[in-house]
């Protein structure tokens, strides 16, 4: 395993962290053995802040998000270490019943495909009312009025009429608005959005992102956006966290990371071009090779078989996170050696 331990959490975060995840570990129990789908992941989100988690598919982003919600598909996957503190409470230690009162109220989630995220046989209005009824029950009339209010808030035109529509009668963008309305119904402290715009048209994407930012400004909730799309990151996020093979390989403010990506994987994602000229739609650039399956991660750094600058040490050991600059961390031996702005390499 890595010789260099992860550094202690950022000593003094700018704002008190609302959600603070430390050393989160998710293990998949498969017939082939135990696989670490998420390996010692730490992150923090402050009120009103947006954190973007990026990486190719299969790198553990979505699993991390589900782990925060404690919605992992439980026979194979399980949280096996670390903590998830939301306003000081460790969610990993809550009972399922307690967690149910957190989900949808303090911590809410938006999913990738709005067409399949809604129950096809219930009206959208009823599905919104359901969240309110669960966490904040009131008279039927009052809850219905609140659901309508929410539908107007997420800009559903003609909300009264749409209230009794079924998901298949609405467009993808409208359905995603419904999903968002459900998510913000009880003013969550933190909202996790797993690829909220991937399944939508480009024009709708921008509208949805604007809506989310607006709602965030209004409520001051923390936002975690999981995405493939660097355009989304640039547009919405304050900080960005890059994941590869279940681990954080780099994080920092969006400006810092886009100006100066340190990890070769991050650089690869950005297509080794300046951030201004991203690929069309800001999609991640193609990196030769593919994310290795968890079952056969290479020895040493998980990225070594695709890394253009890998050297002997990368095949022998796994790099730990170092902090080359304040509020910035990266896990790469090359960065360590070259001493790109020798910060304070911890433990080396």
């Amino acid at each position: 395993m890595a010789l260099i331990d992860a550094p202690p959490l950022t000593p003094l975060p700018p704002a008190p962290a609302l959600l603070s995840v430390s050393d989160l570990e998710v293990t998949l129990f498969t017939r082939a053995g135990q696989l670490k789908a998420v390996d010692r992941l730490s992150l923090e989100v402050a009120a009103g802040e947006t954190l973007a988690i990026v990486g190719e598919s299969g790198c553990g982003k979505s699993i991390s998000a589900l782990a925060l919600m404690r919605l992992l598909p439980e026979p194979p996957a399980k949280i096996t270490g670390g903590s998830v503190r939301l306003a000081g409470r460790d969610l990993t230690r809550l009972s399922e019943g307690e967690m149910q009162r957190v989900r949808g109220k303090d911590l809410a989630m938006i999913f990738q495909d709005p067409m399949s995220a809604l129950n096809p046989v219930l009206t959208v209005g009823r599905q919104i009312v359901e969240v309110i009824a669960r966490h904040d029950p009131a008279s039927h009339r009052a809850m219905q009025a609140r659901a309508l209010e929410l539908m107007r808030k997420v800009r559903i035109p003609d909300a009264e009429r749409r209230f009794n529509d079924y998901p298949h009668q609405l467009s993808g963008g409208m359905n995603q608005r419904i999903v968002i309305a459900m998510a913000i119904a009880c003013q969550p402290k933190v909202l996790v959005a797993d690829e909220p715009t991937t399944a939508l048209d480009v024009t709708i994407q921008a509208q949805i992102l604007d809506l989310m930012k607006e709602l965030q400004a209004e409520t001051g909730m923390g936002l975690i956006i999981i995405t493939h799309d660097l355009g989304v990151v640039a547009e919405t996020a304050d900080r960005v966290l890059v994941m590869y093979a279940g681990r954080k390989v780099e994080d920092g403010t969006v400006d810092a990371v886009f100006d100066r990506p340190l990890h070769p994987y991050t650089r690869g994602l950005m297509g080794a071009t300046p951030s201004a000229t991203l690929q069309p739609h800001g999609r991640l650039a193609e990196i030769p090779g593919s994310v290795p399956a968890l079952a056969d991660l290479p020895a040493g750094c998980a990225f070594n078989n695709r890394c253009p600058i890998a050297f002997a040490r990368c095949f022998a050991e796994r790099p730990g996170l170092t902090m080359p600059a304040p509020a910035r961390s990266v896990a790469c031996f090359a960065v360590e050696q070259e001493g790109v702005r020798h910060g304070d390499p911890v433990g080396a």
Binding site: L71, Q100, R101, R103, K105, S116, P120, V131
Partner: peptide
């Protein structure tokens, strides 16, 4: 199905 996950994410028992 995804909507079952959505339902759980709402905090339903």
């Amino acid at each position: 199905h995804d909507f079952v996950r959505t339902a759980r994410a709402k905090g339903l028992s």
